[in-house]
């Protein structure tokens, strides 16, 4: 379970999060929607301790992340896969080495046979050809980089997956492929997921619940049907732009 309690964060004079309460139940996929620059990625980075709150608490797996020591935090992070917006692949390493770095268990990572097998298995899970393993990130398209980033995030068999704008910058076909992957991996791996996105249709497709972040707070949260039925004008205005075409959940 993931829980943010009254979390506030500001950068200089800019208040990004202002007393956010947010929770994700075990095995659930929650999409975090909101306009660009509203602080969705900042909230996501609080969940694995990349950013620390100025105020409030972040609980993951029954542990208060703000109080953890370095080694405890590293141990917890090894159970949280993070898919970065632009892949964040190590450009001096091959795709295979990038994925191997995602194997967080030291004994497994040291076992060359296992780590190679696992890297190829993860490539297959994200529908990429094993030939890609030998390539460098610079030789891949944007969509392929995102998929390699996903493969790295799942290589360590995490319990939680955090997705930061998985479809941004992609054409509709590739965005659809990534949305299918999010659905497939959440189902097959049984992970608890938080998907940060401003793609309303994608959010309605993959999420069990949707939260909307506006003005530093969670403005609305509920199932896709509940959100669609919301009477909040700001929520409706945001949803209507993308939901003019019917979406099947």
């Amino acid at each position: 379970m993931i829980e943010l309690r009254n979390v506030s964060k500001r950068f200089a004079d800019l208040v990004v999060l202002d007393g956010v309460d947010f929770s994700v139940r075990k095995g659930e996929t929650v999409a975090l929607l909101g306009p660009s620059g509203v602080g969705k990625s900042v909230l996501l980075k609080h969940i694995n301790g990349l950013i620390h709150p100025d105020k409030g608490e972040v609980w993951v797996d029954g542990q208060n992340l703000t109080r953890l020591k370095r080694k405890e935090l590293a141990r917890l992070r090894s159970r949280i896969g993070y898919v970065f917006q632009y892949g964040a692949l190590f450009d001096s390493m091959t795709v295979e080495d990038n994925i191997k770095l995602g194997i967080t268990d030291e004994a497994s990572a040291a076992d060359e046979t296992y780590s190679r097998k696992r890297a190829l298995q993860c490539l297959e899970l994200v529908n990429l050809d094993p030939v890609v393993a030998e390539k460098y990130p610079a030789e891949l398209s944007g969509g392929m980089k995102k998929r390699v980033g996903i493969a790295r995030a799942i290589a360590g068999q995490p319990t939680y997956l955090l997705w930061d704008e998985p479809t941004s910058g992609l054409d509709p076909v590739n965005a659809d492929i990534i949305d299918s992957l999010v659905e497939k991996l959440d189902d097959e791996l049984g992970v608890t997921s938080v998907v940060v996105t401003h793609d309303v249709r994608g959010a309605f497709r993959v999420a069990d619940r949707i939260a909307m972040l506006m003005d530093g707070r969670i403005r609305a949260m509920g199932s896709p049907a509940e959100l669609r039925a919301s009477t909040d004008a700001a929520v409706q205005e945001f949803l209507e732009r993308d939901l003019t075409i019917p979406v099947h959940h």
């Binding site: 990349l50 917890l76 992070r77 964040a88 190590f90 450009d91 770095l101 967080t104 360590g156």
Partner: peptide
């Protein structure tokens, strides 16, 4: 390019 964050997120220093 968030590669440093990526390392940290994998539980590595």
């Amino acid at each position: 390019t968030e590669q440093v964050d990526a390392l940290e997120s994998l539980g590595r220093s």
